[in-house]
Design a protein around this nucleic acid. Structure first.
Lengths: 231, 231
DNA sequence: TATAAACCTGAATATACCCTGAGAAATGGC
DNA sequence: GCCATTTCTCAGGGTATATTCAGGTTTATA
């Protein structure tokens, strides 16, 4: 689903900006608002394909936003965002239908992946599928399974997200800062060294099964997932 | 029965919205109203395939709604909803023919399962639908019987619903939040730990009879019902 | 070649996550 | 009302994971 239209609803401007930049870069058309009232108004007029909706808004809960929309016969799938330990917003029954749910802090690429998953499920057109295959590696995003030349390897959640990010940008060097911004949660305040560690973990699992060195280091620049001619 | 048309009748807007979203995603065309009078009017005009009907309505009882419809020669099967303490026995007298009833609070996937069951009984087509078979496990949804490689196992109601949900989404990781929202009643207020407990119960009953580990843990992500090639 | 910067990787640590048994509380059948 | 089943919570133990760090290795460049 290219050029899907996303409405972001969050009262924290930081989060809105982060999401807006990330989703625009990922090819979405983005609207963003800070209150539930605005959300209902914009959703009614613009009819976006999906909502990214904070559960805790200043004027009303994200839950009541979806209720209002549904009472207006407007059915838009929702990716809910909520603070991790905020027990107050733990409303069950939130993810009915094709909806999904993530806790803050999130990583921007995880948000993008979830949006794609929701659109796959709700817009039954198999235009985009859950398989991401680049060169010798195939990722089944529904099952969270990774295959190197047909052999499955077990990755931790962070290893998985890092590999998915690199494979989404093949033959393009990604700096460690870019990787941190996309793969790690937005409040992570560690050092770049952790990227080196995780690249090392990935190589240890991938290289024994691959013909080529798929994750290349560009010294002083970053890392790159490479593809090769004739496989 | 794809694209069956459902009329929801409930005075609580929350419940209507919950049902509406869930049933639409499950592939039904949905109408919804809040009173018995509207229900009769819409049912007469739209002739839905099934009614989901709250027993306690503000203007009249669900019973009188069905009576009115039958006096108008309109026969539509009904799934009654009643509050737990309203005396469920009163409802049993209401169910004639293919009707069914359930008590609030319900789980959304259970409602969908009951609707499918009623439609199977009343529209005699595709009776095979009641068998859900994925890999080594077969569920007879009419009889509530579960077989692992041909051997029947006894499951509690919650174990059954959890297994059915996982099997309805094979090879797709489902998060604990999603599982809670679909399998547990909508007012459930507990923690994710209960999902772990029930997965443990299920495994204890399934694993001794199955060749593969059918319910897989994706650490940090959720659980998945897996199928295997050449089984 | 010498030097510094960048990178790799093993080890150490704290923590998050998951499994399971046990028991309390709720439910349902008789 | 009583007993059996089921639901739900909780805590202990075990393991995977995230993160940091230090020592070794490679690379660029003077």
């Amino acid at each position: 689903m290219k050029n899907a239209r996303v409405l972001i609803v969050d009262d924290e401007k930081n989060i809105r900006d982060l999401l807006e930049a990330g989703l625009k870069f990922a090819g979405f058309s983005v609207y963003s608002v800070g209150t539930g009232t605005e959300a209902v108004a914009v959703a009614e007029k613009a009819k976006p394909d999906i909502l990214v909706l904070d559960v805790m808004l200043p004027d009303q809960s994200g839950f009541s936003v979806t209720k209002k929309l549904r009472s207006m016969e407007i059915y838009i799938p929702v990716l809910f965002l909520s603070a991790r330990d905020d027990g107050a917003d733990k409303v069950t029954g939130l993810t009915v239908g094709g909806d999904d749910y993530m806790t803050k802090p999130f990583s921007i690429d995880e948000v993008i992946a979830r949006i794609h998953a929701i659109l796959r499920r709700t817009q039954k057109q198999e235009a985009e599928d859950s398989i991401l295959e680049v060169g010798e590696i195939k990722i089944n995003q529904d099952a969270h399974e990774v295959y190197v030349n047909g052999t499955e390897i077990e990755l931790s959640p962070t290893e998985y997200k890092l590999l998915r990010f690199l494979m989404s940008n093949p033959n393009r060097v990604m700096s460690k800062d870019q990787i941190l911004d996309h793969v790690w949660e937005y409040d992570f305040n560690g050092e770049q060294g952790i990227v080196e560690s995780y690249v090392s973990y990935l190589r240890k699992k991938i290289d024994p099964l691959s013909k080529n060195s798929l994750i290349q280091t560009k010294r002083g620049v970053g890392y790159m997932f490479r593809t090769f001619k004739e496989d």
